[in-house]
Amino acid sequence: MYRIFIKPTLILAAIAFAASFALSHVNKITRGKIEERARQQKEDALKAVLPPYLGYTIVEKNRKATVEGIEFFYSIAQKNEGEKILKAYVFECENPGYSGIVRSIVAVDEKLTLLGMSVIQQAETPGLGARSKEMASNKTFFEVFFGLSRKAASDKEAVSQSWFEAQFTGLDAGKKIGIIKKGEWSAENAALRQELIDHNAVSAITGATITTKAVILSIEKGIAALKHVLEQENNAPGEAASP
């Protein structure tokens, strides 16, 4: 009895206790850091999609609406341009990707032109879909290895948006966004950039078309929800009467 049931139970309990004791301490050390990172990431994402030089200031943060049973969070930003007040909207949107949800934060202006987007959550395949967050670098390995460009590390940090995210800026989200398979581009490749804008399309991540589609679909869904919310606001009787 003791040998078959009680002893194993006690040992298993002791080891499980030791394990949870150790893990609770590790958790205590790392939790603050992890939360700090998450907050920092959201702030960085907001800066990336609504860069300060555009001049917008957030006037209403994290408004919540329910569109067809799904919660939709959005913020309103505005800036004065001459007499007019221009508005911009920042919202979070998501769509299933190749493995798990791909969530992005997106900013559009009044005409639904994309001001910027940033993928804030994804669990796509390393080397394929996960490259949606990869920074483009024009430096060759030999240059870096032999020290020809020492500033490589700091250069990388200066850009907070990956090429994949950056290509959404300037596209018209009110229309359908297409996909062209042209591979990576960088800021220097202006011809490809122009071609993408002309076609209102993005270049897919090589080998990760599903991820690319997921991001586009999520933006479409987000725009649909945003339009819905804005229509409701405009039609609201209280709003129409106010100056």
Binding site: T30, R37, Q41, S99, Q122, A123, P126, K133
Partner: peptide
């Protein structure tokens, strides 16, 4: 997650 978030994101699951 706390000290190398980029690595954590790249390796994921």
């Amino acid at each position: 997650k706390a000290f190398q978030p980029e690595v954590d994101k790249a390796l994921g699951i």
